[in-house]
Design a protein around this nucleic acid. Sequence first.
DNA 1: ACATATCTGTGATTGTAATCAAATTTTGGA
DNA 2: TCCAAAATTTGATTACAATCACAGATATGT
Lengths: 239, 239
Amino acid sequence: MKCDYCTGECSHKLCMHKVPIFSSLSPEEMSHISSIIKHNSYQRGEVLFSEGDSLSSLIIINEGSVKGFKITPEGREQILHVFSEGDFFGERNLFGGQQSAYTAEALEPTKTCVFTKDAFYKMLFAHPGIAVKIIETLEDRIARMESTMQSMGVRSLDGRIGGLLLDFADKYGETVPEGILIRLPLSREGIANFLGVARETVSRKLGQLESEGVIRPVGNKTILLLDGETLKAMTGKDS
Amino acid sequence: MKCDYCTGECSHKLCMHKVPIFSSLSPEEMSHISSIIKHNSYQRGEVLFSEGDSLSSLIIINEGSVKGFKITPEGREQILHVFSEGDFFGERNLFGGQQSAYTAEALEPTKTCVFTKDAFYKMLFAHPGIAVKIIETLEDRIARMESTMQSMGVRSLDGRIGGLLLDFADKYGETVPEGILIRLPLSREGIANFLGVARETVSRKLGQLESEGVIRPVGNKTILLLDGETLKAMTGKDS
DNA sequence: ACATATCTGTGATTGTAATCAAATTTTGGA
DNA sequence: TCCAAAATTTGATTACAATCACAGATATGT
């Protein structure tokens, strides 16, 4: 791993280097703070914390991805967030919130860095610039949620699924000659649980989009987006 | 109007007194800041700003309420936020965001207070405690959006509508002997546009909830929630 | 208080997605 | 590489909500 602050290769694997909220810190500040961070690893399917838990720590993803979800009265998962490398969460418990509003579960092997509440508050008051960074990050999160809500609100199912694909393309897409290659963080069932629709419907609609030449699935976990413009028109995200 | 900082009645109508993010300021700081705030009034239906506008100000609602929405490709409004007294918005434009992600329109006669970007940044660095307050407020907003997403994701329509009613009860409800009296910020059509369903369906489902004895509509703009427990069970919000 | 414009409720029909039930493909571990 | 488990696709049927059409109720301004 290479980073902006160390010469040559970094061996310490400081998650901080991947996290925008710490980008305003000097190397010295970073290494001081890194000394008060704890590390954890999780396997796919492992639960980081459950809805209602009163944990008091900020969790930063160093590697991997995590879904945040609730169980609906119908017994289905409603996914609320998908967090990946560099994202942080759990912060609500640090700022006034009492209990976790959702369960967090690793979607793949995941490594995290953990701040305790005390460590975090100390840092916050010592480095006010971080607060602004946090606000910016929360704004990004709100913007992402707004985008998801817009996708969910579209009445036509193709539009909803297309909207989610665009969101994922934005966050997980890699531009290749033919279009945008999207490594999906969620399975078909996960997508269904994000949008609140049936798993089978997701399959059918993706099949439809494929036959229209808009996408080309590459295995189950990757989709090649060939015609983003059509999707944008379907979802109203052509702004 | 009465406030914690002035003896007797306040005549200056400082919106700051209603806004949690300023609660950590001293009276002197408040009156200094109030001198750099601008005021605006809007009629019902008037647009404060439109999607894509690059405004650079923080808007605080002093009186009234405002909806934030986008237009879906189907031509329908997708409501993303309902802001009311004490809420602030537009802040994304202050923190890195470039353009407004939605259109803001007054739902009723509304008075606002406006911070310019410069004034706001000065205040932020002079009073670091405000940053923490802002983070807390954004966390609340995220929590509210999570709740809305959960409502939207419930498959059964009664559940979705019930979830929204609970959200509104939380924010706009007043406890009365018979239950909770909710002054709805949105019309039936507004509710439909929030949830992404048809207006008629909202009517039908509310009618159904009425015949089940869960709610009692009082005119078009008020609903008396008689049996919150049933709603909570329907929506999974009984945590 | 009245009148008009807007909003809301109800019925009939249609369209779309949920559900149930297998068959098939993909994936990850031995 | 192969095998078993998991995930996905596909088909048939059913249930539910969207739509269209209009009647009725509410609200707002004069």
